[in-house]
Amino acid sequence: MDIKGKLIIIGGAVDKGSFTEGHFDQDVTKNLNFFETGILRRLIEESKHNNESRIEILTTASKIPKEVGAEYVKALAHLGAKNVGVFDITKREQAADPEIIKRLEVADVIMVTGGDQLRLTSILGGTLFQDLLLKKYQTEEFIYAGTSAGAAAASNNMIYQGSSGEALLKGEVKITGGMGLIGGVIIDTHFVQRGRIGRLFQSVVSNPRILGIGLGEDTGLLITNNVTMEAIGSGLVILVDGREIKDTNLTQIELGKPISINHLVTHVLSKFDTYDLTTHKMHIHTSQYADDLGVPTDD
């Protein structure tokens, strides 16, 4: 199936300006440079009607939904978005509410906030809301944007538990079904800051066909047609490719024992770098070898 929608997955701690700081200055120019170059600006630019797009904030994963929703509304307003609402869905029956479904039908973007991805999937999984969300993503010029829990839950399979320190002990990483927008990948967030590389290693060695995606904070991927991934934001994206694994002890050891892996391939992307999910080829935007390859430089 040709996917018409776009997916923006973010590693958490999105820079929304300085709205969470104690001394927020009303003069936008004195705040962080997010307004010109950041992820939310890119989200608006990629949307169907730009500043006129209908954007809905989904706070289901959060324990403080009202506060989180208000932050995003404020940030998007400063960026010029004129049509923003908040879905307050805390129970499964609300995911079939006719008014909420009608709002989703006309939405151009849904921004899924952080929190607990298991809370997100357990409330929305198998509901009319999820069915419509998937349909819109597959058939319309619609953007699903998710940060932290909202990003981790975007794929068919998601990590929902596992400490960083013990992530390479067999059985320590817990995986369940996600929201189902994209297959063939598994996503982890707050990746660099919380040292979660081991969580992706175990996820990938258990099924090397799946590409592991580790998203740093205030960093994300713009995925178009479920094929082309472009790094956006200020930090790093780590890709873990298990297709060339030569050996492991995974099935020979007991639960709780360390996992060995031979020849696990990793890639590191920064802003504007791209990766093709069909060819598994990475392109570095400012490659130092561009001239040697006969590719024009950016200068």
Score class of each variant (00 low, 15 high):
123 I>L: 12
244 E>M: 09
239 L>F: 02
179 M>N: 03
296 P>L: 14
293 L>Y: 12
288 Q>S: 10
21 E>V: 10
88 D>C: 00
249 N>E: 09
167 A>N: 06
253 I>H: 11
128 L>S: 10
69 G>F: 00
121 T>I: 14
137 Y>K: 00
104 L>E: 01
44 I>P: 10
297 T>M: 12
127 T>D: 11
295 V>H: 11
21 E>A: 12
115 G>H: 04
261 I>F: 11
84 V>F: 11
229 M>C: 15
52 E>G: 07
106 V>H: 11
176 T>Y: 07
72 Y>I: 09
284 I>Q: 12
82 K>V: 09
117 Q>P: 13
99 E>C: 00
294 G>V: 06
83 N>I: 07
238 I>M: 14
297 T>G: 15
56 E>D: 11
98 P>S: 07
63 K>P: 03
147 T>S: 14
73 V>F: 09
56 E>Q: 15
177 G>N: 07
166 E>M: 14
27 D>K: 11
123 I>Y: 12
164 S>C: 09
133 L>T: 11
78 H>G: 13
274 T>C: 01
26 Q>H: 11
289 Y>N: 00
54 R>E: 15
249 N>D: 10
229 M>Y: 02
279 T>D: 08
121 T>D: 10
168 L>D: 03
188 D>L: 06
240 V>M: 09
299 D>G: 11
89 I>W: 03
33 N>A: 12
279 T>H: 07
150 G>D: 05
175 I>A: 08
80 G>Q: 15
255 L>K: 13
224 T>Y: 07
7 L>Q: 06
161 Q>A: 15
76 L>W: 06
136 K>Q: 03
37 T>I: 05
144 Y>T: 02
85 G>H: 15
268 V>G: 12
21 E>T: 12
46 E>K: 09
62 S>A: 14
284 I>E: 11
186 I>A: 01
153 A>S: 14
34 F>K: 02
122 S>G: 03
295 V>A: 13
225 N>T: 09
150 G>P: 02
70 A>G: 10
251 T>W: 07
60 T>K: 04
104 L>R: 02
173 V>Y: 01
144 Y>V: 04
4 K>T: 05
83 N>T: 09
278 T>H: 10
143 I>F: 04
157 N>E: 08
29 T>N: 09
228 T>Q: 13
14 V>A: 01
165 G>Q: 14
35 F>S: 06
40 L>M: 15
222 L>S: 02
58 L>H: 03
86 V>A: 06
44 I>G: 13
154 A>H: 04
18 S>M: 10
192 V>H: 12
47 S>C: 08
253 I>N: 08
214 G>I: 02
236 L>R: 11
5 G>H: 00
218 D>R: 04
276 D>M: 06
156 N>H: 08
66 K>W: 00
79 L>W: 11
165 G>M: 13
219 T>P: 03
97 D>S: 08
180 G>V: 04
147 T>E: 10
265 V>F: 07
176 T>M: 09
103 R>S: 14
187 I>S: 02
189 T>E: 05
155 S>F: 04
279 T>Y: 06
6 K>R: 13
98 P>C: 08
115 G>C: 06
113 T>M: 09
234 S>W: 01
297 T>E: 12
189 T>W: 03
85 G>Q: 14
267 H>I: 04
59 T>G: 02
